[in-house]
Design a protein around this nucleic acid. Structure first.
Length: 289
DNA sequence: CCACAGGACGGCT
DNA sequence: AGCCGTCCTGTG
C-alpha cells in the first residue's frame, strides 16, 4: 500500500495519503450516514463499527478504530487498495472534460458499502433530496437498528432485513419515507427470505446482476446501478440521474438524449472505469451548476 | 398556492 | 417498446 498505518490503541492514523479527501468522499452523494462535525471531521457507522475521522492534508486519524478494525472494515470500505491516480490518468488521457472534472475533486473514492444498506438507501433516494434521504435513513435506523454507544456519541446500526421485512408499512411510513415505504418493506422481506451477496452478484455479470436487483420493488435502472457501484460490486456501473444526464448532454452529447443512449455512450467510452467517471462528473456538476 | 427534488410504476397506445 | 400522469415529503 502506498500509505502508512500507525496504530495506538483505539486510534489509527494514516499518513502519506494520495487521492483521499474525506469531504469529497463522504459528500459526493454515495453515502448518507456520515455527520460533519467540523471541516474535515466526520463521524459515522458501518455495520456495527462507529468511527470519527479527522483529516489534515495527507493524513487521516480514525478515532474508535483499532488496527484490526481498520484492516477488517475501513481499509475495504474506503477502497484503499485501488490506485486512483492510475484511474484518473487513464480517464483524463485525450479527454479534457474528464480532466476538468477529476481535477476538481481528485480525492474522491468509491466506497464499498454493505449491500442491503446500499439497496434500501437508494430505494429511498428515488425522486428525493439528499437531506431528506439522510433524515429518513436516520429515523429508520433509530426505529429498527441496534444502538451502539461510543466515546464520541450514540449510533444506530442500519436495520437488518428481517426486522424491516416484518415491520408494518404504516410504521415504516413514520420515517417519512412516503410512497417508498411499501418498497422498503417488500424488498427487505424478499431479501431476508432469499439473501443476496456481493459475491453472488459478481458471478452474474453486470447485466445479470442489474436485472436481478431490478426484480425488487422500487428498484429501476438508476437505483440498480447505484447499488452495484456503491456496494463495490461493479466499477463499470454508470448511474444516470438528472445531474449526470444534464452534464453528459452538455459536455459530451446533445440535449434530450434518452437515458439508455447515455448509458451506452458511457459504457463504450469509459468501460470498466465508468463508475469512477460518473462520480467525478456528478460531483463536478452538483458543485458547479 | 404552486413547482420541483439525485425515479419507479402502472396504465395507456 | 415508448410515453406520461402520479406519487410522499420538504423547501423555496
Amino acid at each position: 500500500m502506498a500509505f502508512e498505518i500507525t496504530c495506538s490503541g483505539n486510534i489509527t492514523t494514516l499518513s502519506g495519503l494520495k487521492n483521499f479527501d474525506i469531504e469529497s468522499i463522504l459528500e459526493c452523494g454515495q453515502c448518507f450516514r456520515w455527520d460533519k462535525n467540523n471541516e474535515n471531521d466526520y463521524t459515522g457507522i458501518v455495520k456495527d463499527k462507529a468511527v470519527r475521522i479527522v483529516q489534515t492534508k495527507d493524513a487521516a486519524r480514525f478515532y474508535g478504530c483499532t488496527c484490526s478494525d481498520f484492516k477488517e472494515i475501513w481499509n475495504d470500505y474506503f477502497d484503499m487498495s485501488t490506485d486512483y491516480g492510475a484511474i484518473i490518468s487513464t480517464l483524463t488521457t485525450n479527454d479534457d472534460v474528464m480532466k476538468m472534472a477529476a481535477e476538481f475533486a481528485p480525492g474522491i473514492r468509491i466506497l464499498r458499502q454493505p449491500l442491503f444498506e446500499t439497496l434500501i438507501s437508494f430505494i429511498i433516494s428515488a425522486n428525493n433530496s439528499i437531506p431528506n434521504i439522510r433524515r429518513v435513513i436516520a429515523r429508520l435506523s433509530k426505529m429498527y437498528g441496534e444502538k451502539i454507544d461510543t466515546e464520541f456519541g450514540a449510533f444506530y446500526k442500519f436495520p437488518d432485513p428481517g426486522v424491516l421485512g416484518t415491520a408494518d408499512v404504516s410504521e415504516i411510513a413514520l420515517s417519512k419515507a412516503g410512497f417508498r415505504s411499501k418498497y422498503i418493506k417488500k424488498t427487505a422481506k424478499e431479501f431476508n427470505e432469499n439473501p443476496v451477496t456481493t459475491d453472488q452478484l459478481k458471478n452474474l455479470g453486470y447485466t445479470g446482476a442489474k436485472k436481478e436487483l431490478m426484480k425488487y420493488p422500487g428498484v429501476g435502472a438508476k437505483v440498480a446501478d447505484c447499488t452495484l457501484l456503491f456496494s463495490g460490486a461493479y466499477t463499470n456501473a454508470f448511474p444516470v440521474d438528472v445531474w449526470v444526464k444534464k452534464i453528459m448532454e452538455e459536455l459530451y452529447l446533445k440535449k434530450d438524449t434518452p437515458l439508455g443512449a447515455i448509458s451506452d455512450y458511457a459504457s463504450e467510452k469509459f468501460g470498466e472505469l465508468g463508475g469512477y467517471a460518473q462520480q467525478y462528473l456528478f460531483y463536478y456538476a452538483r458543485s458547479n451548476t
